[in-house]
């Protein structure tokens, strides 16, 4: 037995008087067609809803920031991800990058050793005063890759004589074209500052204003920058870690 096709059922909903008697008779005695008719009537009944309300843009930013932060395996085809700072939830960053107290101490120790080693090798920093008064490590961060949890070195903030120095000792950075620039990203996810280049490729130290870390600029980020004169972040981050 043939069923009534959807077009005829639709006409039965829209203009019952114009529907041929045969169609109506069939539908009245056919449970399958009756069900489809009911479904169409349901659509007609539900077709009175108000327009949808889009969420504010900040929700989109938060979703993408959270997804990128919590799932470093995901990314674009080449394994790198565009930098997403706007609206990044500070808690999410912290939870992944939080350095336990003991590890922070350890990281700071390593950073100091690395700093001293550099001083001796290059001779550009007098080793003796550094050794006698190394300053106080106020915060440190383990740096990791963004697309995996691979270690990418350490950063530490050292306070000495009312100046704050950020020491970065990176490792395993991608050797691609461009220079490595160091940034501090605010945990509010909205602000960032460039603090200098890793001229040697992997290590460097940078004097920064004392209040900067207190203001929330705690996320150390190393980017690779093409030689294009554009002062903004290239969007390609090689390593990141939060000072704790």
């Amino acid at each position: 037995m043939f069923h009534v096709d959807l077009d005829d059922l639709a006409d039965l909903v829209l203009d019952p008087d114009a529907t041929p008697e045969a169609v109506r008779t069939h539908v009245a005695s056919c449970p399958a067609c009756r069900d489809r008719l009911d479904a169409l009537l349901d659509v007609r009944r539900l077709a009175d809803g108000e327009p949808l309300v889009a969420p504010p843009d900040r929700v989109r930013d938060r979703v993408l920031a959270q997804v990128r932060d919590a799932d470093p395996g995901a990314g674009t085809a080449d394994g790198r991800r565009p930098l997403s700072v706007a609206g990044a939830p500070a808690e999410a960053r912290r939870s992944r990058n939080r350095v336990p107290v003991w590890a922070a101490g350890l990281a700071a120790g390593i950073a100091l050793v690395a700093g001293l080693g550099l001083g001796r090798l290059t001779g550009d920093a007098p080793a003796t005063p550094e050794a006698t008064d190394p300053g106080t490590v106020v915060a440190a961060a383990d740096l990791t890759a963004l697309d995996s949890d691979a270690a990418r070195g350490v950063a530490s903030a050292v306070e000495k004589d009312d100046t704050l120095t950020l020491r970065v000792s990176a490792e395993g950075l991608d050797d691609s074209d461009g220079v490595h620039e160091v940034w501090l990203i605010n945990t509010d996810g909205k602000r960032m500052v460039a603090i200098g280049f890793l001229a040697s490729g992997d290590t460097g130290q940078f004097d920064v204003p004392l209040g900067l870390i207190e203001q929330g600029y705690r996320i150390v980020d190393i980017s690779v920058e093409p030689d294009d004169g554009d002062p903004t972040h290239s969007g390609v981050s090689l390593a990141r870690g939060e000072l704790a």
Partner: peptide
Amino acid sequence: HVRRGLIQLH
């Protein structure tokens, strides 16, 4: 259009 529209919504 109304008929096709109803079916598409359905």
